[in-house]
Design a protein around this nucleic acid. Structure first.
Length: 299
DNA sequence: CTCCAGGCTGAGC
DNA sequence: GCTCAGCATGGA
């Protein structure tokens, strides 16, 4: 049997500094990336390969990471440029950001060293809002499970590598469900939040484009009236959609890491956020993510 | 069995 | 304003 030499379908994206797919995709900011293979070359421990398949919005991609360069397949040059590069935040210089965050701060320096290569994604605001509605009082593995079931059952099929993946559901697809329509997802009491929010979006109550032009405080006030949205979900939505990188979500882990590593930074969410805003300013969201990532493994 | 997980709602002060 | 039980579900 003659082996057919196919053209390499990979698109080379070149060297990407300050990138680690594991830290970026598994830190809890997104829930639809799967590691599909890891190889470590025995001859040199720097040469390795890390393969991921990810879905965001209605886009799917396979990423290959060799430790310094990214390549992609299952996508196109235009989709790469118009969606995935912005999504992966590749235009941002994380060396500068890390220097600003860790200047004179050994705690942050250690958190950054541990979470090296973690990048904040720029996710679709609708998808981010629903995802973090589901995240409340929940664990990351189960959030992944619920979100993936939600997409499989209600998201449009995306042909991918000879099989099918599923886009994140549209607001319309979720708004038409009755109260038990989401039971298959096992999201518990959060199902009602998801459906009611979808209905409010369809009714025109929520406009992601409007959200993107608002200052932080206004955007937060805009999100809070949604059923099931409190300050945590609102801040996560604004941070992980890339709309407001100064947002500083506070949960159990962040509270613990602040109380332990920054004693005196505050006892309430508001106090911690004031501390973060004063200390890290527009990069508070990235600081939060490094701290969250660090806290989950060390505290 | 209990406790916990990227919290929020509604009721009672 | 503030505190706090209750909430669905599954894993440790």
């Amino acid at each position: 049997m003659e082996s057919q030499i196919l053209p390499d379908p990979r698109i080379r994206m070149g060297p990407v500094p300050d990138f680690d797919p594991g830290h970026t995709f598994l830190c809890g900011q997104c829930f639809r990336w799967t590691r599909v293979g890891t190889k470590t070359d025995a001859s040199s421990d720097r040469s390795r390969q890390d393969d991921w398949v990810g879905i965001a919005g209605s886009h799917a991609i396979r990423l290959q990471w060799d430790g310094s360069c990214l390549s992609a397949s299952g996508t196109t040059e235009s989709e790469l440029k118009g969606w995935w590069r912005p999504y992966l935040d590749l235009a941002e210089n994380y060396s500068d950001l890390k220097l600003k965050l860790s200047a004179g701060d050994p705690v942050m320096e250690e958190a950054i060293r541990f979470g090296h290569g973690l990048r904040l994604l720029r996710q679709d605001p609708w998808e981010t809002l629903i995802t973090f509605l589901i995240s409340q009082n929940n664990g990351i593995p189960r959030i992944r499970s619920i979100v993936n079931t939600l997409c499989t059952c209600f998201g449009e099929a995306i042909p991918f590598e000879g099989g099918m993946l599923h886009a994140f559901p549209t607001p319309e697809a979720l708004a038409v469900l009755n109260s038990c329509g989401l039971d298959v997802c096992r999201a518990g009491y959060r199902s009602a939040y998801v459906i009611r929010t979808a209905q409010q979006v369809v009714e025109g109550r929520f406009d992601p484009n409007a959200l993107s032009s608002m200052p932080y405080e206004e955007a937060r006030e805009y999100l809070l009236p949604f059923h099931g949205v409190g300050v945590k979900v609102a801040d996560c939505t604004l941070l992980f959609s890339g709309l407001h990188r100064s947002a500083f979500p506070v949960d159990r882990w962040v509270f613990r890491v602040m109380d332990t590593l920054y004693p005196g930074s505050g006892k309430t969410t508001k106090e911690l956020q004031a501390f973060a805003k004063d200390r890290w300013g527009e990069n508070a969201g990235l600081a939060q993510e490094y701290l969250f990532h660090y806290a989950r493994s060390h505290l």
